[in-house]
Design a protein around this nucleic acid. Structure first.
Lengths: 215, 215
DNA sequence: GTCTATATCCTGATAGAC
DNA sequence: GTCTATCAGGATATAGAC
């Protein structure tokens, strides 16, 4: 069974694909993308390689021709998410001379953007519980990201631009808790694009939802 | 097989336990509590009944003497969470004459309180993906709760007390996304109690984190 | 209430033919 | 690249002795 499906290419980026010769079959990117989608629908642990094979219209063995293990699929997805998050955070805090307030706002915006552009991978990352070495390592990297974000909030409080009547750690957790909660319902083909969501989160968190703060 | 299970009662209430006679063993509440804790640490699907038996220091068969199935443990926990959430929402919106703004604020506060007092059960609920009938039914009830909360936000926007430059559905999702994100890090023995957290969430969301809004 | 032993099915992963 | 057949182990759950 072939199923053809030259619907390959780096997920998300609509780049031109190099022409393929010979038997089509699946390429790794497509397998990974479909796998991550299934993991997000059913949960990683609840998804068996049989499920994935069925989803792809393959036998389990054929699937193992494309993929060395179930954990490797998880690993690739988590790496994608973490690479993107770390990169976005680097960019947001690139100018150490800028006010922490601006850098924090930039971090919120770029976090939302990464969350949207790498939605499946980030969704998977945010659900990792720490079972197995792949998940443990991912949690380690994620904690590092969280700590950089918290440090940013702390700086902004110190410079006086963010309210100081709440502990900065708490403010940071709640702020990025709201950001991360987007993965629970946002859909790429949905009503809101990354910019609109980044704007909404930014307004809600910085200005509040009280009508008196409306601008 | 015992299980019985008419031992309902608002779970979570740290009432004094009736003195036990005869062979100690485990009572159902304890088994359920330990099970839910383990489910939350490892994930429901990643936790086997062997894991749970080992955690309790029992054999698998002895465990099945206390519990009819793995799914029943899940069911009880999800029911506990949903019962508590629905009840809290009823109370928060009990006075239809009160301004929607006040009812919304009350709903936020009581949601945080329920989340804290029934933390393990609510955590489990928020991670359910819809695998199996137990989870599907829980998701159905959860969606109903979400819709009532969204309706509350919509009302508050209509009465002019909550900012109208964002779609009410979006505001509601972000607001309760922040609330729900508490389960990711909050611990009952931690620095913050329910009242402090409810206060922090309320301030952050209604007033914003900008220092200019600090009161 | 707890145990050992077992039934039945499914898991991730592999071997080797086509 | 895909298949059928298979492996060793683990899953939920049960039977029946003590």
């Amino acid at each position: 069974m072939t199923w053809a499906g030259p619907d390959r290419k780096a997920s998300g980026v609509p780049a031109a694909d190099p022409p393929r010769r010979g038997r089509p079959g699946y390429d790794q990117q497509t397998v990974l993308r479909r796998a991550v989608d299934l993991f997000n629908r059913q949960g990683y642990d609840a998804t068996s390689m049989s499920d994935l094979a069925a989803e792809l219209g393959l036998s389990k063995s054929a699937l193992y021709h494309h993929v060395p293990s179930k954990a490797s699929l998880l690993q690739q997805a988590l790496d994608e998410a973490l690479d993107a998050l770390e990169l976005a955070l680097d960019a947001a805090s690139s100018d150490p001379g800028a006010p922490a307030y601006d850098r924090l706002k930039a971090a919120v915006r770029s976090s939302v953007t990464v969350l949207m552009t790498h939605l499946p991978a980030v969704t998977l990352l945010l659900r990792v519980r720490g079972n197995g070495t792949v998940e443990v390592e991912a949690l380690r990297r994620r904690r590092a990201v969280d700590e950089r974000l918290t440090a940013l909030v702390r700086e902004a409080v110190r410079e006086g631009s963010v309210r100081a009547d709440l502990p900065p750690d708490l403010t940071g957790r709640l702020l990025f808790g709201m950001v991360n909660s987007l993965v629970e319902w946002v859909r790429p083909e949905g009503r809101y694009d990354a910019a609109a969501l980044a704007d909404a989160v930014s307004r809600l968190t910085f200005e509040g939802l009280d009508a008196r703060h409306e601008r």
